[in-house]
Design a protein around this nucleic acid. Sequence first.
DNA 1: TTGACAAACGAACAGATGTTCGCTATAATA
DNA 2: TATTATAGCGAACATCTGTTCGTTTGTCAA
Lengths: 215, 215
Amino acid sequence: MMLSQRQQHMLDFIRHYGEEHGFPPTIREIGEAVGISSTSVVKYNLDQLEKKGFLERSSEISRGIRLKAAAAPRADSAGQLRVIPKLGVISAGAPIPAVGQQDNPFGDEVLTLTQDLVPASGELYALQVKGDSMIDALVYDGDWVIIQHQNTAQPRDMIVAWIKDREETTLKYYYPEGEMVRLQPANPAYQPIPVRADQLEIQGKVVAVFRQLAH
Amino acid sequence: MMLSQRQQHMLDFIRHYGEEHGFPPTIREIGEAVGISSTSVVKYNLDQLEKKGFLERSSEISRGIRLKAAAAPRADSAGQLRVIPKLGVISAGAPIPAVGQQDNPFGDEVLTLTQDLVPASGELYALQVKGDSMIDALVYDGDWVIIQHQNTAQPRDMIVAWIKDREETTLKYYYPEGEMVRLQPANPAYQPIPVRADQLEIQGKVVAVFRQLAH
DNA sequence: TTGACAAACGAACAGATGTTCGCTATAATA
DNA sequence: TATTATAGCGAACATCTGTTCGTTTGTCAA
């Protein structure tokens, strides 16, 4: 999800133009500003920026560009934003979707969080919890879990694990103990689960959980 | 130099449209909104408004309208970010801190979320959960709950309640039932608590929960 | 009554602006 | 080598959108 030099430039120009004029620029104005001679190339790059979550466009509307939060100027350091793609759903009964999966129910939607809430580096993605099977991890239907993709973990990390012999995805704290791994639920009322290390596949680390109540 | 009803209406519409879309409306959209069938009449009134200093237009430019300060109930257009003050901690054993409390352990720290994750309006603040006493609401030590301050609630809202006779703060779904209120835990494994309505003090509505895992 | 003027209408026009499409060029991949 | 994806070009097109203009109505002062 990188921005090319040109796309960064476009974003800067659109923001600057909007501040100056009170309304967004046209495709041709953007092209002229960043040195693109063809309107179709500007459109191409705008589509890219929209797909990456930096702006929204209203089709067939003059100057129908709306910058999203991710494109806001980085005011203070804590205001740095992290754009996290919504990759799919997670439930105990099914493996988690892989990056670039075709049938992503969320299309190219993203979740944007400030940088101070999540790790500075690492590949992050968001999955929406389906059902109540992860209630022992204190997450429930509808919650978003933000995951850092990795295949190893440190003790005490909360991991996304695939337990091969049970064919089950789970969110647990990770405590390696020799040949075995103890998977500890976040809710202390639940019992830890011992699993043979070779039956455990670490899919990533849970770095945050977000729950949006109806409003 | 008075504004006619119609011109006031136009100004309101232009401001509202801009906040909603990120770009100004066309003459025809304004006309439709305020009930003018002819584009020339809209132009006539826009010219009036410009003459009176409420807006500026760039001629022959689509949507080339820029509201001036005079037109203002200026909403903060700092982007689609919502800055939420961290007000203190919440636990079952103590009342929640009031706005402007002196001994705020978080000073002036804030939590910033994108606008789409929380309600557009309303007074929001964040409290950090202390201890495990709210585990029946699926929130745990360290979690942040984002609260909209209000003293009433709709059925099925998750409320922040102070139960007077128990001297206890709690997070529960709100189900009023005549003289009584049923407080339903988010975790279905826990039992609902019936409370006399006059013993219940609604402090606010939970609009979101954020959990940051160690990293 | 008459003339000036603000306010409004709707059609016609012209220019502003987004989209589509056929075509290159390059790099990565099979 | 053939294929595919990414980037880019420019022309043609369709529609979006602001402006102009002839007309009408109502009010008010001369």
